[in-house]
């Protein structure tokens, strides 16, 4: 383990960290602007050009808010809970390749924090740990609505994780590897969205449910649960939950791009630019869904996960396996 490797890794970690921290305010601004226009409003426009600094102003406001801990709360868990989903989101981002190998001062540097041979398992593992932040936040608040929100989200995330994992397995069957960098390299000529369209549809539906975004945002359904698991949170703890939600959207989009949309592959423009374009499109898609779909009812959500998505993903896996066996590939 030489010094150059350490420096290289540290720089890449800082780049990803900085990108997410700087990107989240932009995404929030984009979300408010896009939803505004879709609903025939104009969205934020007062702070900075096109309202670009609105999220920064909101962030500043959150900094100066009083940091409340409810009297009956479990203090340690209450304080720890908001950090967990942020940590797991950053851990998952470590393995997503955002560009080809580049030559920096004579070193071949892969644009990815680390390429592990179990990348997909790593991502599924870290995202499944992310649910603790929500469940514990809901429990530690010692209040009815947060607890209900936390319980809902734990049931929801466990249910949708299964179909999500299985939809990724059908791609793994085709590639024969769990490394995201290797999966991206195999998509130079054909993106896996073409042969695995159904797997992609299942994956992205589960991904939206995993990140608790509309129309699957039952964990914080404000019409029923005040604000769900983060009802009792204020100030920067609330901001951390907010950050985690958007960072997790980036994780889900990043995996979808790497596994189904050819990663950084694309004509003419440099690979990193292609990755950013695809990422922006996915985040736009998230916002678009939120602006156009009403929230599901809770029983509908569970029935959809277990009775539609899970059997569909298993069927897709079986068909993939049979086709591959007939081709005699891999």
């Amino acid at each position: 383990m030489d010094i150059a490797f350490l420096i290289e890794s540290a720089v890449k970690v800082l780049i990803v960290f900085g990108f997410v921290l700087a990107g989240v305010p932009l995404v929030v601004w984009m979300e408010r602007k896009v939803i505004g226009h879709m609903q025939d409003r104009i969205g934020p426009q007062r702070v900075g050009p096109f309202g670009l600094l609105q999220t920064i102003a909101d962030g500043m406001k959150l900094f100066f808010k009083e940091d409340l801990v409810p009297a009956g709360a479990d203090r340690v868990v209450f304080i720890m809970a908001p950090a967990l989903p942020v940590i797991t989101a950053f851990l998952a981002l470590c393995v997503i390749p955002f560009g080809d190998t580049v030559n920096v001062f004579g070193r071949q540097v892969p644009l990815q924090v680390t390429d592990v041979n179990i990348a997909i398992l790593w991502i599924l593992g870290t995202t499944s740990m992310g649910v603790y932040g929500i469940v514990l936040g809901g429990w530690a608040s010692n209040s009815k609505y947060p607890l209900l929100g936390g319980l809902r989200s734990s049931a929801q995330m466990i249910s949708y994780e299964l179909a999500q994992g299985i939809s990724l397995v059908s791609v793994i069957l085709m590639t024969g590897t769990l490394s995201l960098a290797a999966i991206v390299r195999q998509q130079e000529h054909l993106w896996f969205i073409v042969p695995q369209f159904f797997a992609f549809v299942i994956y992205i539906l589960c991904g939206i449910a995993e990140t608790n975004r509309a129309p699957f945002d039952l964990a914080e359904a404000e019409t029923e649960l005040v604000a769900g698991f983060h009802t009792e949170y204020s100030s920067m703890k609330f901001a951390l939950y907010f950050l985690a939600e958007y960072a997790n959207m980036m994780v889900v989009s990043g995996i979808a791009i790497s596994v189904f949309f050819g990663g950084w592959h694309g004509p003419v423009l440099p690979p990193v630019v292609w990755f950013l374009i695809k990422l922006s499109l996915f985040l736009f898609f998230y916002v678009w869904l939120r602006a156009t779909f009403p929230r599901l009812r809770y029983d509908q959500l569970m029935a959809f996960g277990w009775k539609v998505l899970l059997p569909a993903s298993l069927l897709n896996l079986a068909v993939t396996a049979v086709v591959l066996a007939l081709q005699g590939a891999k």
């Binding site: 398992l121 599924l124 499944s128 740990m129 429990w139 319980l151 734990s154 995330m157 466990i158």
Partner: peptide
Amino acid sequence: QFIAAIQILVYAGAIMVLFLFVVML
């Protein structure tokens, strides 16, 4: 590494969440 990942994914990520779920309920 595989066992390690499965340990996190299955035990820490799924089974313990169910444990918590039951304890809270």
